[in-house]
Design a binder for these strands. Structure first.
Lengths: 255, 255
DNA sequence: GCTAATCCTTGACTTTCATCAAACAGTGTC
DNA sequence: GACACTGTTTGATGAAAGTCAAGGATTAGC
C-alpha cells in the first residue's frame, strides 16, 4: 500500500525528496480497538498520521473518568506540536477507536526537514493555529454551554458535515457522551427528550433530524461562533427535574 | 521608553535589523481598565505584546456571562497564532485589566521576517506548542474537576509561583472566579469553607495557606498532571447542601 | 439459536452549582 | 464624614447533571 502522505495538510508542501526522507523514519502500525498508542506523560519522540480508523485522544481524571479531547480522523496528523518542546511529553493518551492504522514519524528527522523548508514551517504553524482555535472553541462549549446545548450543537455540526438530516452517529453513544463531557445517562436522556419533542427520531445509532430550526435554537450556534450575539432565543423555563423541559417560543426573537 | 521586544520569547531570536523592521510596523498603546483591544470576530491584522498591566482574553456566552480564557502578563505576546490563517479573525475578545500598555505588530510584516528566518519560525512553533498544551490542561481543569478542585489547584499553582504560602490574589475575586469558570458567589463560598476548615486564612485578597497537604489532596494535582494516577485520596462524602462539606481523612491513602 | 457480555435506557435520589436577593465591606468623591 | 459605587459575602431556593441500581436491547461467541 502506497499512501502519499501529502494528503495530510502538514506534509502537503514537501517535495518528493523530502517525502522520501520523512518516510525513512516512519513506521506503520495497526491497532486493535482500545489498543493504546501512548499514554499521558510518555516521552514524545514521534508524531502520527491516521490512515485508517479513528484515534481517540483523552485524559483520565483522578476518579477514572475519561474526557475525550479529540477524535482524529484519517488523513489527519496529531501530536506534531510537541516536537517543538524541549522535553516533549504527550499531554494526552491515545488509543484506537475500532481498528485503526497509523503511520508514526520521528520528530528529529522531521525537524531537520523543517529547518530547510520554510514553507513547511508555515504549514505547521497554520495547522497549529487551527488547532488552537479549535481548543478555544472547545473551552467555550464546555463552560458556556449546558449539556443539551452541547449535544444539539454536535448534532447540527454532524448534519452539516454529512449534508443531510439523516445520519449515523460517528461512534458509540458512550464515546460521544465522553466527547461532549457528559455521562452516558445524560446523553441518553437528552436524546430521549429531543425525540419526545419530535425534534428528531432515533433508531439505534441512526438519527433523523425532524426540526432543524428548533434544534438550532437549542444549540445557540450563533453565540458559539461569536456571531449575532444580539439574537438571543427566548426560553420559557418550566423545568421539573426533567431535562430540556422548556418550551421554546419559535417566534423570531428580534422584533 | 525603549523596550527591547526581545524579552518576549517570540522575538528573542531576532537580530537588530529584524527588530528594527518589526518595530517599524508597531504601535504602542495605553488602555484604561476595561477598555477593549478587540472583540471576538474582529478581523485580526495585528498581534500584541503586553509591556505593562494585564490583558484579559475572554469569550461571552449568549446569556452575557464571560469566560476568561487567559490573562496575559507583561512580556508575553498574544494573538500571534492567528496570522497563519487565511481569514484571521480573533476567536476571543481582549480588554485591559487595570491600566495596561501594549505594543501591536502588523501580521504581514512579521510574516515576511518569518519567511527569512527559520529560527524565529521555530520559536513561534515552540510558543504555540506551549499554548496548545496550556489549553489542553485548561480543558482538563474544566471538565474533570469540580469548582473546589479548580480553586484549590489554582491556589497551589499560585503558591508555587510565588514560592511562599503567603500571597496576594493576582486579580479581583470576581475576575478569578470567571477565570475558573464559576460565579463569584461560589468562589466566595469555597474560600469561606476552606477557611472554616483551617486550610487557609483569608484577609481581603491576601491568602495564607495553613495546610498545604490537605489543600493538595483537594486539588488532586497528581491526576491533573497525569502522574501517580494510582494515588487516589479517600474522601468521605457527607455533603449537605454545603460546598466542600467532606471530611478528608488525612491518612496517606496508600497502605 | 442460545448465552454471555456489552452497551444503552430508565427511574429514584443526591450533589453541585447557579440564581436571586439582600446585606456588607471597601474605596473614592465631593 | 456622608454619599454613592463597586465588589464581596451570605442565605434561601431551584435547576442541571451526576450517581446508583436495575432492567432492556444489541452484538458477539460458540
Amino acid at each position: 500500500m502506497n499512501i502519499d502522505i501529502r494528503v495530510a495538510h502538514l506534509f502537503s508542501a514537501l517535495n518528493d525528496d523530502q517525502v522520501r526522507q520523512v518516510m525513512e523514519s516512519s513506521h506503520t502500525g495497526t491497532f486493535k480497538d482500545g489498543e493504546s498508542l501512548f499514554e499521558t506523560g510518555d516521552e514524545a519522540a514521534r508524531f502520527f498520521l491516521v490512515i485508517g480508523g479513528q484515534i481517540k485522544l483523552f485524559r483520565v481524571s483522578a476518579n477514572g473518568d475519561q474526557k475525550i479531547i479529540d477524535i482524529i480522523q484519517p488523513g489527519n496528523t496529531f501530536a506534531e506540536a510537541l516536537m517543538f518542546m524541549e522535553h516533549p511529553v504527550y499531554p494526552v493518551s491515545a488509543e484506537a477507536l475500532g481498528a485503526a492504522r497509523v503511520i508514526s514519524f520521528d520528530n528529529r528527522r522531521f525537524l531537520q526537514i523543517l529547518s530547510e523548508s520554510n514553507e513547511v514551517c508555515f504549514r505547521i504553524m497554520g495547522t497549529m493555529s487551527q488547532r488552537l482555535r479549535g481548543l478555544i472553541k472547545e473551552i467555550d462549549d464546555l463552560t458556556l454551554q449546558s449539556a443539551t446545548t452541547r449535544l444539539c450543537a454536535f448534532l447540527l455540526r454532524r448534519m452539516e458535515e454529512v449534508g443531510m438530516p439523516d445520519f449515523t452517529l460517528p461512534a458509540a453513544k458512550g464515546v460521544l457522551a465522553a466527547r461532549l463531557s457528559m455521562k452516558p445517562e445524560t446523553f441518553s436522556r437528552i436524546l430521549q427528550n429531543l425525540s419526545v419533542k419530535k425534534v428528531l427520531v432515533i433508531k439505534n445509532n441512526k438519527i433523523k433530524i425532524m426540526d432543524e430550526d428548533i434544534l438550532r435554537s437549542f444549540a445557540h450556534l450563533e453565540s458559539i461562533y461569536g456571531l449575532e450575539p444580539e439574537k438571543s432565543i427566548e426560553i420559557k423555563g418550566t423545568s421539573m427535574t426533567d431535562y430540556c423541559k422548556f418550551t421554546l417560543t419559535p417566534t423570531d426573537s428580534r422584533e
